[in-house]
Design a protein around this nucleic acid. Structure first.
Lengths: 221, 221
DNA sequence: TAGCTAACGTACTGGTTCGTACATTAGTGA
DNA sequence: TCACTAATGTACGAACCAGTACGTTAGCTA
């Protein structure tokens, strides 16, 4: 019975704290994104991991802290993408367009992130509030926007009174909505906002919208 | 002990099917919006009603159907608001601005509706899909947009290639995001998008954005 | 006013789910 | 190589929660 004497090497107990922790985070991200905070099942996360539920409590303390850790990592990913952005060689119009496209692409490629943020909003951002990591770090994108805006306004290309945070909200709202509300929008209006054939169209539309807003002469304030 | 001999007249059993049903819907709307579908408690809904849990099952069949009923009513409210919109006497620019403001105002005044839609998207619009009511009815706002767009494009005020559904998505995304992502946005960027002092600013910003997009000459497509 | 039914209430159950007490082993440093 | 600790596994409990079996009554109608 040699096959029994060697019961699947992968079944042996190998200790690797980092890997176990990372694997739990991966699966938890999927499960929370799939079902929401209350819909997610700790047992289900454990079952889809090479380890057991005990380890989730050992490493993270509980369901709540696990969700916070998942959020922290998800926000870390988008911050990294933003940090890699290099638009200093572009003129303000092209730079803003590039930034908008980065957000557009990232949101599209990370639907789980969008779902996690939606879920966190249902819970009134209580996990962000309770996280030291997430509280501190700002958004690299904001710094970039500030620089581009200043440059564009100085040269007279952009209208004067646009705020960086506002512009970030404008860009984010379009990119976020497209992913977050895909299902209800599709069900009600019969159009899939994530349809691949329309991707380039919506990507250009976002840029056109933002640039039009930035370059239009504003009516009396 | 006279106070015991008359144990609150309101505690008597009065039958009013319509009122009971409506009361359950009211409380359920709050509870689902507060905690999400899985976070909501049928017992909690019942407790905050003058009736009992038994009645929820009597009238609605179950938690799932109750949520669907809640959604149906919430969508009904916004459709009614849209139907009351009368912009035929306005020029296209003013008409679009008026429509955008209606969406802006409605979303701001109905945060529960926004939360319900967010929750429904987490569940991939499965309740809308399973609802006869919600599947059929379109959006009066869309018809209005179509009419305004046609008029504006005919007169040459608006650029030609804008689609009504796209424009609706653009307006909705800004208005929706402002409410739905209020908490994470506030926690991360230190700005409350629903701050009353900024309300007029964001309301104008939305109109400016949409009009700028509609009146800008478009780059090659 | 008798009888019928829609409307309502109580009490319970079966399954689920987060969390933990307790036992065990791999790997490391002395 | 021995002992110690970080890492892991098993089994279980207590609370919770959607849903229901069963019994009751208000109000209408013939």
């Amino acid at each position: 019975m040699t096959s029994v004497e060697e019961p699947a090497r992968s079944g042996e107990r190998i200790r690797d704290a980092a890997r176990t922790r990372a694997e739990i985070l991966d699966v938890a991200t999927q499960e929370f994104a799939r079902a929401g905070y209350d819909g997610a099942r700790v047992d289900e996360i454990a079952a889809r991991t090479r380890t057991t539920k005990r380890m989730i409590y050992y490493y993270f303390g509980g369901k709540e802290q696990l969700f916070t850790a998942v959020l922290e990592r998800a926000y870390g990913v988008i911050r990294e993408a933003e940090q890699e952005l290099d638009v200093d060689h572009l003129d303000p119009v092209a730079a803003i367009r590039r930034l908008a496209e980065l957000t557009f692409d990232h949101h599209e490629q990370h639907p789980d992130f969008i779902r996690l943020v939606s879920i966190e909003n249902i819970h009134e951002a209580q996990h962000i509030a309770g996280s030291e990591k997430l509280g501190k770090i700002g958004s690299p994108a904001l710094d970039v926007i500030r620089r581009i805006l200043a440059s564009g306004q100085e040269s007279g290309l952009f209208t004067a009174d646009v705020d960086a945070v506002d512009l970030h909200a404008m860009i984010s709202s379009f990119c976020f909505f497209r992913v977050s509300n895909r299902h209800t929008f599709g069900a009600l209006f019969g159009r899939d906002l994530l349809d691949g054939a329309q991707r380039a169209h919506y990507r250009a539309m976002l840029g056109d919208m933002v640039i039009a807003y930035l370059t239009a002469e504003r009516s009396a304030d």
